[in-house]
Design a binder for these strands. Structure first.
Length: 905
RNA sequence: GCAGAGGUAGCGAAGCGGUCAAACGUGUAAGGCUAAGGACCUUAUGGCUUAGGCCUUCGAGGGUUCAAAUCCCUCCCUCUGCACCA
C-alpha cells in the first residue's frame, strides 16, 4: 500500500485554489449570488475545536453552493467592541501574572508584550492576526478581501454604525431612559456576571412601591404583589430599628434608615431630612390609596429593613408571614380575601398547616401561596375594578390604578446575594439617561415575526424559539461608557455596546474592500443612504463617484445564510433580525439561518479553559484538515454533539483504499454485468439522498450515505465480482463530487488522479439520473445478500462444511401473490384489511401475513431474481467453497420470493 | 422560576407509527494475513436456539392502536438562553 502524505496534498490544493482565486467571487449578473457568513468572533487567543466546528459547517455549505453554480461570498471580520481587550491591555501594564502567562503560552515575545501595555490597539492587532492565520490554516474558503474590524479603530466602519444609529433614531426606535443594573458600590461600575465572586445569574427584580399616606407623610410599602392591596389590614414596621424621613420629589417618605444608602442609588435627588421614631409611627394611621380605608401601623420583627423600604403592607389572607403575625397581634379587624383559588378557600391557613409555623415553614408556605395564586388565582369582588381578572394578567392594571391615585412608585432588589470580586456586596443602581433600542416596539415585532415565519431556519425547531423570544424581548441598553467601540453619533460620551453594533454589519461586507479606500471626509450618512437605499442628492453626486458600492450591495444582499451556535439565538441572532426589518426593505431581509449545538470532547464543553488545550493548531498537526473536518459531521441539529477523535480513523482507512483503487485502475476491464447496473442505480439514489441531507445541514446523515454508504456499495460491487473500468471511473467521480464539500483537499486530489481536468471546487455538483434507478434490482440484490446471510447461519448451525448448495427460487405464482400484497401494503398495513382487499385463499398468502411486523413491502421480480442469482453463482461458490446450483420454478414449499429455499448437503 | 431542545445498544449517532434487535461510525473479542506490530480481511458483539426461528429491549410509569423507539399524559434527568455580557 502506498503511503500518502495528506498534509502535503492539502497544502498543494490550498495554494492552487488561492492562485485560481476560487474563493474571491466577482460580481456576475449572469450568476446567482449566495451570501453566507458566520458571526464575527471576539478575538481572545487561539481558535479551538469549537470554532472549527461552526466554521467548518459554514465552509461545507459554501463549497456545496459553489458546486451548485452559485456565486458564493463567504467573508469574515472580527469584533473588537467591548471591554475585555481594554482589560487585557490594562492587566499587562499592571503585570498581572495570569495575563503575562497567557501571552507567553501563546508565544508572544517580551518586546511584543511591552507594546501591549495599556495599548488595546496593539492587543487587538495581535489577536486579529492570530485569528486570521488560524482560519487560513483551517483551509476555510473565506474571501479575505472583505475582512474588516469593528470599533473606531476602523473609522470607516464606525461611520457605518453611526449611520445605522441615526437611522434607528429617526425611526423613533431609540429612546432615553433609566435602567437598573447590578452595581458594585466600591468600584462604582456595573457588576457583570464575570466580575462576581458570588451570585452569577442574579439580577434586579422590580418591586412596586405603594404610597400609603398619613397626613403629609408617605409610607412607601415595597411589594412584589401590589394586587393584594385590596386586602391590606395594616402596615408593618420593625419597631426595633431606626426610621428616617427622606424627601423624594417634594414628598416626605418614611423609610428604614438602613435602606437609605440603597435607595439613593435608585431614586434621584433623595434627601434625608429627619429621624422619626418607630413609636411615633405606631401611633399613626395610614390611608389605603385604592379604597380610602384607614389602617393601623404595627410593629413586628418580621420586617427586614435590609429589604425594600422597611415599610411593609400586611395582607394576612394572601401572605403567610402576615397571617401569622396578624393573628399574634390579636387585632379585631377581619382580614379580606381578594384572590380566589378554586378548591382552596383558606390557602394561607392551609399552607401554614402544611409547612409549619417556623421561619422556614412560613417561607415555604409563602412560595407555595404565591405560585399557586399567581398561576391559578382570580381577583374576586373585593378587588374593585380588577374583579374577574386573572392574577397573572393583573400587573399592568394594578400599576395603572395606583398611578391614577398618585400612589405608585418602584424600586429594585437583587434576586439573590451578589458579591463583587473586589469583595464588596453588590446592589442595584438605576442608571439615568441610558440610551435604549426599543426592541419592545409592537409594530417592529410584528414585522420581525413575519420575517421569522417565512425564512429558512435549520433546524426547524429553532423557529419556535425565535418566535418565543420575540414575545419577551424588551428594550435593550445600547450604549455604555467604557470599552472599545463606536461613539453614539449624537452623544459621543457614550460608546455603542457590542451586541448593538453588530446587527447589520453583514451589509458592510458587500462594500468593505471598496469603502475603506474612500477618504473618511467623503463619507457621510448620505453615502450610506445611497448605497443601501439608492437615494441620491438630485445631482447624482453619489452615483457618479460611488456606484460600484451600490452595485456590490445590490448584488450580494440579502444574507442568504447565517450560521451560529445556539447560545447566540436569543440575543445576537434576534437583534440581527430585528435590525434588518427596521432598516432594510423586505427584499434585503435575511433569507436563512442555521443554528448548531455545542461540540463536546470527552463530554466536556469546549469552553475557554478546555479550548486552550484543544486548539485548532494541535488538531491540524495530529490529523490534518480533511480528517479533522469529520468533526463537522458529528451530529445534526441543535443538540450538543460529542466528538471522539478516534473516529477519524474511519476516514483515512477508506480514503487510502480509494486512492489505491485509483492507482490500480488498469486491472479493470470492459465487461459489464447486472452488478454494474446495480452500482449505478445505488449511486443515483445516493446522489439525491446526500443532496437533500446537505441542503438541510444534516451533515452526519449526508456523509453516512455519500461517504460511508458509497464506500460500502463500492466494496460490495467488487465483492460481487464487479470489474468494469468505466463504471468504477464514473462511480468514483461522483463519490469525490459528493464528498468534496466535506473533504475538499483529498477529493480534489483523487479527482485529478481519476483524470478529471477541472477543479472540483469549480465543477458541478453530481446530478441524479432517475432513469438509472432500478428498485427491483436493488431489492433483488438485497435478497441475494440476505440469502448469503441465511446460508452462513445454517452452516454455522449444522457445523459442517457444505459439499453442495442448492438454491431454489419461488415460482411465478408466489411472486404474483407476493407483489399483490406488497402493493396492498401501500394502502394499508392492517393485516385484516389486506386480507379483505385481496380475497384469496392461499397458503402463500397466510405465510406472508403471518407476522404483521414483517409484511412484504418491496416489489420483486422472478426474472430479475433469477438473473441476480445466476450471475452470482461464481461469487457464491467462491464464498462457500463448494458447488452451488440455482434453479427456478421450484415446487419447494419453503421458497418464497426474495427468500429462496436453501438445501445444503 | 420562565422559554426552547433532548434522553436509543460499550461509546458517538440515525430512525420519529408497520421492511426495527434498530442504519452508519467507533470500540471490544476470536480467526486470517504478517518475521512482528500497525493497516487490511472474516466472524461475533441483548438473550436463547443443531436449518434460516423464538423471547426481552430504545430515561421511568401509564394510555391510544391490529401495530409504538416513533402519538398522548405524568414523573425523573441533561443542555441552551434569560440582556449591558462577548
Amino acid at each position: 500500500m502506498v503511503d500518502y502524505n495528506f498534509r502535503e496534498i492539502e497544502e498543494k490544493w490550498h495554494s492552487i485554489w488561492r492562485k485560481e482565486r476560487v474563493f474571491e467571487p466577482e460580481i456576475d449578473q449572469n450568476k446567482k449570488s449566495f451570501f453566507i457568513n458566520v458571526p464575527i468572533p471576539y478575538p481572545s487567543g487561539s481558535l479551538h475545536l469549537g470554532h472549527f466546528y461552526t466554521w467548518t459547517r459554514a465552509d461545507i455549505y459554501a463549497r456545496f453552493m459553489r458546486m451548485r453554480g452559485f456565486n458564493v461570498l463567504f467573508p469574515q471580520g472580527f469584533h473588537l467592541t467591548g471591554g475585555p481587550i481594554v482589560g487585557v491591555a490594562k492587566r499587562v501594564k499592571e503585570k498581572d501574572p495570569e495575563t503575562l502567562e497567557f501571552f507567553k503560552k501563546q508565544g508572544v515575545s517580551d518586546s511584543e508584550l511591552e507594546k501591549f501595555s495599556d495599548n488595546p490597539y496593539e492587543v487587538a492587532t495581535y489577536f486579529c492576526d492570530t485569528f486570521r492565520s488560524d482560519f487560513e490554516n483551517m483551509g476555510m474558503s473565506i474571501d479575505w478581501r472583505k475582512l474588516f474590524i469593528t470599533t473606531s479603530l476602523n473609522p470607516h466602519f464606525s461611520k457605518f454604525v453611526q449611520w445605522q444609529f441615526n437611522k434607528l433614531r429617526s425611526l423613533g426606535l431609540i429612546t432615553e431612559g433609566r435602567h437598573p443594573v447590578v452595581w458594585c458600590p466600591k468600584e462604582n461600575t456595573p457588576l457583570g456576571d464575570h466580575d462576581r465572586s458570588e451570585g452569577e445569574g442574579e439580577s434586579p427584580q422590580k418591586f412596586t412601591i405603594i404610597k400609603f399616606r398619613s397626613g403629609d407623610i408617605v409610607l412607601p410599602a415595597a411589594t412584589l404583589r401590589p394586587e393584594t392591596i385590596f386586602g391590606a389590614t395594616n402596615i408593618w414596621i420593625n419597631d426595633s430599628k431606626q426610621y428616617s424621613i427622606v424627601e423624594v420629589n417634594g414628598e416626605r417618605w418614611v423609610v428604614a434608615s438602613d435602606s437609605i444608602a440603597k435607595l439613593s442609588l435608585q431614586i434621584p435627588g433623595i434627601k434625608r431630612m429627619d429621624n422619626i421614631s418607630p413609636k411615633t409611627l405606631l401611633n399613626m394611621e395610614a390611608i389605603n390609596p385604592v379604597n380610602g380605608e384607614k389602617i393601623p401601623i404595627l410593629g413586628a420583627g418580621l420586617v427586614d429593613t435590609e429589604i425594600g423600604t422597611g415599610v411593609v403592607m400586611s395582607v394576612p389572607m394572601h401572605a403567610p408571614f402576615d397571617f401569622y403575625y396578624f393573628k399574634k397581634a390579636g387585632l379585631k379587624i377581619k382580614p379580606k380575601k381578594v384572590i380566589d383559588v378554586v378548591g382552596d378557600d383558606n390557602i394561607v391557613e392551609d399552607a401554614i398547616k402544611r409547612f409549619g409555623e417556623t421561619d422556614g415553614g412560613l417561607k415555604e408556605a409563602t412560595r407555595f401561596v404565591y405560585k399557586k395564586e399567581f398561576n391559578t388565582g382570580v381577583m374576586n369582588s373585593m378587588a374593585g375594578d380588577l374583579s374577574g381578572l386573572q392574577v397573572k394578567d393583573v400587573d399592568e392594571p394594578i400599576s395603572d390604578l395606583l398611578r391614577s391615585k398618585g400612589a405608585y412608585s418602584e424600586m429594585y432588589e437583587l434576586t439573590g446575594k451578589v458579591v463583587c470580586r473586589c469583595g464588596a456586596k453588590g446592589v442595584v443602581s438605576v442608571l439615568e439617561k441610558q440610551w435604549f433600542i426599543r426592541y419592545s416596539d409592537k409594530e417592529w415585532k410584528t414585522k420581525t415575526r413575519k420575517l421569522i415565519e417565512r425564512m429558512n431556519i435549520y433546524p426547524e425547531d429553532a423557529r419556535l424559539q425565535f418566535l418565543n423570544t420575540l414575545e419577551w424581548l424588551g428594550d435593550k441598553g445600547a450604549a455604555r461608557k467604557g470599552g472599545l467601540g463606536t461613539p453614539l453619533p449624537w452623544d459621543s460620551e457614550w460608546i455603542i455596546e457590542p451586541l448593538s453594533d453588530s446587527t447589520i454589519y453583514m451589509a458592510y461586507y458587500t462594500i468593505a474592500d471598496k469603502i475603506e479606500k474612500i477618504p473618511l471626509e467623503s463619507i457621510d450618512d448620505g453615502l450610506f443612504d445611497f448605497i443601501f437605499y439608492g437615494k441620491d442628492d438630485g445631482k447624482e453626486t453619489y452615483k457618479k463617484k460611488f456606484s460600484s458600492l451600490r452595485e456590490g450591495f445590490m448584488y450580494w444582499y440579502p444574507v442568504d445564510l447565517r450560521l451560529t451556535a445556539k447560545e447566540l439565538l436569543q440575543n445576537h441572532m434576534m437583534f440581527f433580525l430585528m435590525n434588518h426589518t427596521a432598516i432594510f426593505g423586505e427584499e434585503h431581509w435575511p433569507r436563512g439561518m442555521e443554528i448548531n449545538g455545542w461540540l463536546t470532547v470527552g463530554k466536556e464543553k469546549l469552553s475557554k479553559s478546555k479550548g486552550a488545550t484543544l486548539t485548532v493548531k494541535k488538531g491540524l498537526e495530529m490529523w490534518g484538515i480533511d480528517q479533522l473536518r469529520m468533526i463537522a459531521t458529528a451530529g445534526n441539529g441543535m443538540d450538543d454533539v460529542e466528538w471522539d477523535p478516534v473516529s477519524v480513523n474511519a476516514f483515512s482507512q477508506r480514503i487510502r483504499f480509494v486512492l489505491d483503487t485509483v492507482e490500480g485502475m488498469n486491472i479493470f476491464g470492459d465487461e459489464k454485468t447486472i452488478i454494474d447496473r446495480y452500482l449505478i442505480s445505488k449511486m443515483n439514489r445516493i446522489i439525491a439522498q446526500a443532496t437533500s441531507e446537505v441542503e438541510a445541514f444534516r451533515y452526519g446523515n449526508a456523509i453516512s450515505s455519500s461517504f460511508f454508504g458509497m464506500y460500502n456499495e463500492f466494496r460490495l460491487y467488487l465483492e460481487l465480482g464487479g470489474r468494469n473500468k468505466s463504471s468504477i471511473q464514473r462511480f468514483l467521480s461522483v463519490f469525490v463530487g459528493l464528498n468534496h464539500p466535506f473533504f475538499p483537499h483529498i477529493t480534489e486530489e483523487i479527482n485529478r488522479r481519476l483524470g478529471n481536468k477541472e477543479l472540483l471546487e469549480s465543477s458541478a455538483w453530481p446530478s441524479q439520473n432517475i432513469e438509472e434507478i432500478d428498485d427491483v434490482l436493488e431489492n433483488e440484490i438485497e435478497s441475494l445478500i440476505n440469502t448469503v446471510e441465511d446460508i452462513k447461519n445454517i452452516i454455522k448451525l449444522i457445523k459442517k462444511k457444505p459439499e453442495k448448495i442448492q438454491i431454489s427460487l419461488a415460482g411465478k405464482d408466489k411472486f404474483d401473490i407476493y407483489n399483490t400484497v406488497a402493493r396492498e401494503t401501500k394502502n394499508s398495513k392492517n393485516v385484516i384489511e389486506i386480507r379483505r382487499a385481496i380475497k384469496l385463499n392461499s397458503k402463500v398468502l397466510d405465510k406472508l401475513l403471518k407476522n404483521p411486523d414483517k409484511l412484504p413491502v418491496k416489489v420483486l421480480d422472478i426474472n430479475v431474481e433469477m438473473e441476480v442469482f445466476e450471475e452470482s453463482v461464481g461469487y457464491l461458490e467462491k464464498t462457500f467453497d463448494c458447488k452451488v446450483k440455482v434453479e427456478r420454478n421450484s415446487e419447494e414449499d419453503k421458497a418464497m420470493p426474495g427468500k429462496p429455499a436453501i438445501k445444503i448437503v
